[in-house]
Computed example of a mutant assay.
Amino acid sequence: MNTITILGSGRVGSGLATALRRAGHDVAVPDRSPGAAADAARAAQIVINATPGAGSLERLGALQEELRDTILVDVSNATVDGPDGLPAGLLYPGSSLAEQLQQALPETRVVKTLNTMLFSVMTAPATLTQPPTAFLSGNDPEAKLTVAGLLTGIGWNPQWITDLGGIETAQASEAAILFVPHVIRSTGLAPFAISIAR
């Protein structure tokens, strides 16, 4: 069992909280007040960033002390949205939200994952007709192993998890968000994920 704090209480955060509690973890989802987030982050072994990506760096950067030596699982995408509210570009072209977080939080072990799929697939990967892929990016091998264990506990087959390498590889997975508006316009909000076929 891990003590986990999830920052963000929308569809992504609440879905992960339910799945992780079902898997036996102690999960806290604090309200949006800075004090509540800081207290919950300080008490956690693992913090999951499920906040809207455009504001994640500012919000988490203020928690440098609370996140020291903590695993930070970043599942968000930082995008510039178009008039229809769907992603139209990357907020950090040539970089990634995960890299920006790692730079701002040098003593935190950042791991990027679960950002290449519709939110419902994060906690129910087996519902798709083809196996999806959960990518891992991060500089700390032990932290990635811990995150992979969390994923298997909520339904991810270990064979569906691919370690891409260091945090710089998050540039690739975050760029996949640019597929999303086109897929949604083409097929609607049916569950989907980026997958590596082998």
Rank of each mutant, 00 (worst) to 15 (best):
L63K: 10
I4V: 08
A193Y: 09
Q130Y: 13
A197Q: 12
R21P: 09
I48D: 06
W156R: 08
V111T: 10
Q130W: 07
N139D: 15
M122Q: 14
D31L: 02
A50V: 11
G94H: 13
G15Y: 07
R198L: 01
D31G: 08
A78P: 09
G89P: 09
G188T: 04
R185G: 15
A190F: 07
P125E: 05
L91V: 09
S186M: 12
A50I: 14
G53W: 02
P191C: 08
P131W: 01
E99L: 00
P158Y: 13
A28H: 10
Q100R: 15
V111G: 12
N49V: 04
G15A: 04
M122W: 02
L128M: 15
N2V: 07
G138H: 02
L105R: 03
G166W: 14
V110P: 15
I154C: 14
F119C: 06
A104T: 12
L189E: 12
V147N: 01
A148G: 00
S120W: 11
R21S: 12
T70L: 04
K144G: 14
Q102M: 03
D31A: 03
Q171A: 14
F179K: 02
A143Q: 08
L63A: 10
R11P: 08
D39E: 13
L86K: 04
Y92T: 08
I196A: 07
P34R: 02
A148F: 03
A98L: 03
L151C: 00
G55T: 06
A41V: 01
T5A: 11
A88I: 01
D26T: 05
G149N: 15
D26F: 00
Q100S: 13
G149L: 10
V80M: 06
A170E: 05
L118N: 08
R42G: 15
F192C: 05
T79P: 09
M122R: 12
W156H: 03
I6W: 06
T70H: 09
L91Q: 15
V147T: 03
I71K: 10
L72R: 06
E58R: 01
A19P: 05
R185Q: 15
G85L: 00
V121E: 13
G165D: 06
L90N: 10
T123M: 05
P87W: 09
I194M: 15
G24H: 11
D140H: 13
L164E: 15
A197D: 03
V27C: 07
A126Y: 02
G138V: 05
P93L: 07
T146K: 00
T133W: 03
S33G: 13
P141I: 07
E58W: 00
S33C: 09
Q130A: 14
R32K: 13
A40W: 14
P106M: 12
A44G: 05
F135R: 00
H182K: 09
A19L: 07
